[in-house]
Protein backbone atom coordinates (compact mmCIF):
# COMPACT_ATOMS: atom_id res chain seq x y z
CA UNK A 1 0.00 0.00 0.00
CA UNK A 2 1.22 3.47 -0.89
CA UNK A 3 0.82 6.43 1.48
CA UNK A 4 -1.59 9.09 0.22
CA UNK A 5 0.34 11.96 1.74
CA UNK A 6 4.12 12.09 1.96
CA UNK A 7 5.91 14.88 3.82
CA UNK A 8 9.67 15.02 3.96
CA UNK A 9 11.86 17.28 6.05
CA UNK A 10 9.26 20.03 5.99
CA UNK A 11 9.99 23.37 7.61
CA UNK A 12 7.87 26.49 7.68
CA UNK A 13 9.04 29.81 9.08
CA UNK A 14 7.07 33.02 9.41
CA UNK A 15 8.23 36.50 10.00
CA UNK A 16 6.31 38.36 12.64
CA UNK A 17 7.72 41.85 12.72
CA UNK A 18 11.47 41.36 13.06
CA UNK A 19 11.14 37.97 14.65
CA UNK A 20 11.45 34.75 12.68
CA UNK A 21 9.11 32.07 13.98
CA UNK A 22 9.78 28.42 13.15
CA UNK A 23 6.33 26.89 13.06
CA UNK A 24 7.53 23.58 11.62
CA UNK A 25 11.08 22.38 11.85
CA UNK A 26 11.86 19.18 9.96
CA UNK A 27 8.70 17.09 9.85
CA UNK A 28 8.44 13.72 8.10
CA UNK A 29 4.98 12.25 7.80
CA UNK A 30 2.98 9.76 5.77
CA UNK A 31 -0.80 9.35 5.81
CA UNK A 32 -2.38 6.09 4.63
CA UNK A 33 -5.71 5.39 2.92
CA UNK A 34 -8.72 5.42 5.23
CA UNK A 35 -6.70 6.49 8.25
CA UNK A 36 -8.08 8.51 11.19
CA UNK A 37 -5.13 10.47 12.58
CA UNK A 38 -5.14 12.64 15.66
CA UNK A 39 -2.50 15.38 15.94
CA UNK A 40 -1.97 16.47 19.52
CA UNK A 41 -0.01 19.39 20.86
CA UNK A 42 -0.20 22.65 22.76
CA UNK A 43 -0.84 25.91 20.94
CA UNK A 44 2.21 27.00 19.03
CA UNK A 45 3.43 23.44 18.49
CA UNK A 46 2.95 23.73 14.74
CA UNK A 47 -0.05 21.48 14.29
CA UNK A 48 -2.17 24.12 12.57
CA UNK A 49 0.68 24.88 10.18
CA UNK A 50 0.97 21.18 9.41
CA UNK A 51 -2.75 21.03 8.64
CA UNK A 52 -2.51 24.09 6.40
CA UNK A 53 0.28 22.42 4.41
CA UNK A 54 -1.71 19.21 4.03
CA UNK A 55 -4.71 21.20 2.93
CA UNK A 56 -2.82 23.21 0.33
CA UNK A 57 -3.57 26.44 2.19
CA UNK A 58 0.09 27.18 2.67
CA UNK A 59 3.41 26.05 1.25
CA UNK A 60 6.52 25.04 3.18
CA UNK A 61 9.69 27.06 3.39
CA UNK A 62 11.66 23.85 2.91
CA UNK A 63 10.97 20.20 2.17
CA UNK A 64 8.43 18.35 0.04
CA UNK A 65 4.73 17.70 0.45
CA UNK A 66 2.99 15.27 -1.90
CA UNK A 67 -0.63 14.25 -2.16
CA UNK A 68 -0.56 11.23 -4.47
CA UNK A 69 1.03 12.83 -7.54
CA UNK A 70 0.21 16.44 -6.62
CA UNK A 71 3.23 18.44 -5.50
CA UNK A 72 1.79 20.64 -2.74
CA UNK A 73 5.11 22.25 -1.86
CA UNK A 74 5.75 24.12 -5.06
CA UNK A 75 2.22 24.40 -6.43
CA UNK A 76 1.00 27.82 -7.51
CA UNK A 77 -2.23 29.32 -6.27
CA UNK A 78 -4.29 27.93 -9.14
CA UNK A 79 -3.10 24.36 -8.80
CA UNK A 80 -3.47 24.40 -4.99
CA UNK A 81 -6.97 25.79 -5.40
CA UNK A 82 -7.79 22.96 -7.79
CA UNK A 83 -6.36 20.46 -5.33
CA UNK A 84 -8.48 21.81 -2.50
CA UNK A 85 -11.53 21.92 -4.70
CA UNK A 86 -11.21 18.30 -5.82
CA UNK A 87 -9.80 16.48 -2.83
CA UNK A 88 -10.03 18.30 0.52
CA UNK A 89 -12.74 18.90 3.06
CA UNK A 90 -12.13 21.29 5.95
CA UNK A 91 -13.65 21.54 9.41
CA UNK A 92 -12.67 24.50 11.54
CA UNK A 93 -12.72 25.28 15.25
CA UNK A 94 -15.09 28.16 14.74
CA UNK A 95 -17.19 26.35 12.11
CA UNK A 96 -16.76 29.12 9.55
CA UNK A 97 -20.30 28.87 8.32
CA UNK A 98 -21.36 31.77 6.16
CA UNK A 99 -23.84 33.57 8.41
CA UNK A 100 -25.90 34.76 5.47
CA UNK A 101 -26.61 31.24 4.21
CA UNK A 102 -28.87 28.54 5.65
CA UNK A 103 -27.43 25.17 6.64
CA UNK A 104 -28.37 23.65 3.31
CA UNK A 105 -27.02 26.62 1.37
CA UNK A 106 -23.75 26.43 3.25
CA UNK A 107 -23.41 22.86 2.06
CA UNK A 108 -24.48 23.83 -1.45
CA UNK A 109 -21.69 26.38 -1.50
CA UNK A 110 -19.27 23.47 -1.74
CA UNK A 111 -21.29 20.97 -3.72
CA UNK A 112 -21.77 23.51 -6.49
CA UNK A 113 -18.09 23.50 -7.28
CA UNK A 114 -17.46 19.79 -6.68
CA UNK A 115 -17.24 17.10 -9.36
CA UNK A 116 -19.43 14.37 -7.89
CA UNK A 117 -21.01 15.65 -4.70
CA UNK A 118 -23.85 14.14 -2.73
CA UNK A 119 -27.02 16.25 -2.47
CA UNK A 120 -26.76 18.77 0.40
CA UNK A 121 -29.73 17.18 2.20
CA UNK A 122 -28.06 13.80 2.16
CA UNK A 123 -24.88 15.24 3.68
CA UNK A 124 -26.93 16.94 6.39
CA UNK A 125 -28.72 13.64 7.07
CA UNK A 126 -25.34 11.94 7.54
CA UNK A 127 -24.61 14.25 10.48
CA UNK A 128 -28.16 14.16 11.80
CA UNK A 129 -28.95 17.71 10.70
CA UNK A 130 -31.54 17.07 7.96
CA UNK A 131 -34.24 18.61 10.12
CA UNK A 132 -32.40 21.95 10.39
CA UNK A 133 -31.62 22.45 6.70
CA UNK A 134 -33.38 25.77 6.41
CA UNK A 135 -31.94 27.28 9.62
CA UNK A 136 -29.38 30.04 9.54
CA UNK A 137 -26.20 29.59 11.60
CA UNK A 138 -27.42 32.11 14.15
CA UNK A 139 -30.40 29.83 14.83
CA UNK A 140 -28.18 26.81 15.53
CA UNK A 141 -26.22 25.87 18.65
CA UNK A 142 -22.45 25.51 18.47
CA UNK A 143 -22.61 21.73 18.13
CA UNK A 144 -25.24 21.96 15.42
CA UNK A 145 -23.18 24.51 13.53
CA UNK A 146 -20.16 22.23 13.66
CA UNK A 147 -22.19 19.32 12.37
CA UNK A 148 -23.37 21.46 9.46
CA UNK A 149 -19.74 22.32 8.85
CA UNK A 150 -18.89 18.61 8.77
CA UNK A 151 -21.75 17.96 6.36
CA UNK A 152 -20.37 20.74 4.21
CA UNK A 153 -16.90 19.18 4.36
CA UNK A 154 -18.01 15.66 3.44
CA UNK A 155 -20.70 16.56 0.91
CA UNK A 156 -18.27 16.71 -1.96
CA UNK A 157 -16.95 13.23 -1.05
CA UNK A 158 -13.44 14.51 -0.36
CA UNK A 159 -10.44 12.21 -0.29
CA UNK A 160 -9.21 13.84 2.86
CA UNK A 161 -10.94 15.59 5.74
CA UNK A 162 -8.86 18.04 7.74
CA UNK A 163 -10.24 19.18 11.07
CA UNK A 164 -8.72 22.01 13.11
CA UNK A 165 -9.84 21.82 16.76
CA UNK A 166 -13.33 20.74 15.73
CA UNK A 167 -14.51 20.55 19.33
CA UNK A 168 -12.44 23.47 20.63
CA UNK A 169 -15.38 25.74 21.22
CA UNK A 170 -17.92 23.07 22.24
CA UNK A 171 -18.78 21.51 25.55
CA UNK A 172 -18.08 17.84 26.11
CA UNK A 173 -21.48 16.41 25.26
CA UNK A 174 -21.76 18.40 22.06
CA UNK A 175 -18.14 17.63 21.22
CA UNK A 176 -18.89 13.93 21.39
CA UNK A 177 -21.73 14.28 18.88
CA UNK A 178 -19.44 16.11 16.50
CA UNK A 179 -16.67 13.56 16.84
CA UNK A 180 -19.17 10.77 16.25
CA UNK A 181 -20.18 12.46 13.01
CA UNK A 182 -16.52 12.64 11.97
CA UNK A 183 -15.92 8.99 12.82
CA UNK A 184 -18.96 7.99 10.83
CA UNK A 185 -17.81 9.92 7.78
CA UNK A 186 -14.40 8.30 8.07
CA UNK A 187 -15.90 4.86 8.41
CA UNK A 188 -18.60 5.11 5.75
CA UNK A 189 -16.82 7.17 3.13
CA UNK A 190 -13.31 5.91 3.79
CA UNK A 191 -12.05 9.49 3.90
CA UNK A 192 -8.62 10.05 5.38
CA UNK A 193 -9.34 12.15 8.44
CA UNK A 194 -6.82 14.27 10.30
CA UNK A 195 -7.95 15.98 13.50
CA UNK A 196 -5.75 18.43 15.32
CA UNK A 197 -6.54 19.21 18.92
CA UNK A 198 -4.98 20.04 22.24
CA UNK A 199 -7.55 17.84 23.92
CA UNK A 200 -5.68 14.61 24.68
CA UNK A 201 -8.93 12.76 25.33
CA UNK A 202 -9.71 12.70 21.63
CA UNK A 203 -6.53 10.75 20.89
CA UNK A 204 -8.26 7.50 21.74
CA UNK A 205 -10.45 7.83 18.65
CA UNK A 206 -7.60 7.74 16.14
CA UNK A 207 -5.87 4.90 14.34
CA UNK A 208 -2.73 6.81 14.96
CA UNK A 209 -1.79 9.64 17.31
CA UNK A 210 1.00 12.09 16.59
CA UNK A 211 2.16 14.38 19.34
CA UNK A 212 3.76 17.63 18.26
CA UNK A 213 5.95 20.05 20.13
CA UNK A 214 7.98 23.04 18.93
CA UNK A 215 7.43 22.30 15.26
CA UNK A 216 8.36 18.62 15.39
CA UNK A 217 6.55 15.33 15.68
CA UNK A 218 7.87 14.12 19.02
CA UNK A 219 5.81 10.98 19.52
CA UNK A 220 3.88 8.57 17.34
CA UNK A 221 1.47 6.03 18.77
CA UNK A 222 -0.87 3.51 17.22
CA UNK A 223 -4.12 2.62 18.98
CA UNK A 224 -4.84 -1.07 18.91
CA UNK A 225 -8.53 -0.33 19.29
CA UNK A 226 -10.24 2.90 18.26
CA UNK A 227 -12.52 4.25 20.93
CA UNK A 228 -15.97 5.45 19.88
CA UNK A 229 -16.88 9.05 20.53
CA UNK A 230 -19.19 8.34 23.47
CA UNK A 231 -16.43 6.48 25.26
CA UNK A 232 -14.32 9.62 25.46
CA UNK A 233 -14.09 11.50 28.70
CA UNK A 234 -12.92 15.05 29.21
Amino acid sequence: MQPVFRMQDVARTYRVGDVEVRALDGVDLALWPGEFVVLLGPSGSGKSTLLNLLGGLDTPTRGSVWYEDHDLATGDDASLTRYRREHVGFVFQFFNLLPSLTAEENVALVTEIAASPMPPREALALVGMAGRATHFPAQLSGGEQQRVAIARAIAKRPDVLLCDEPTGSLDAATGRLVLAALARANRELGTITAVITHNAAIAAMGDRVLRMSSGRVVEERRNAVRASADELAW
Binding site: T81, E86, V88, F92, F94, N96, L98, L109
Partner: peptide, 14 residues
Protein backbone atom coordinates in the same frame (compact mmCIF):
# COMPACT_ATOMS: atom_id res chain seq x y z
CA UNK B 1 -11.73 37.60 6.28
CA UNK B 2 -12.73 34.24 7.59
CA UNK B 3 -15.41 33.83 4.97
CA UNK B 4 -12.88 34.64 2.27
CA UNK B 5 -10.44 32.14 3.74
CA UNK B 6 -13.17 29.52 4.02
CA UNK B 7 -14.25 29.94 0.41
CA UNK B 8 -10.64 29.73 -0.72
CA UNK B 9 -10.10 26.64 1.44
CA UNK B 10 -13.06 24.96 -0.22
CA UNK B 11 -11.48 25.52 -3.58
CA UNK B 12 -13.08 28.70 -4.82
CA UNK B 13 -10.48 30.33 -7.02
CA UNK B 14 -9.00 33.70 -6.30
Amino acid sequence: RMQIGTLRAFGYTR
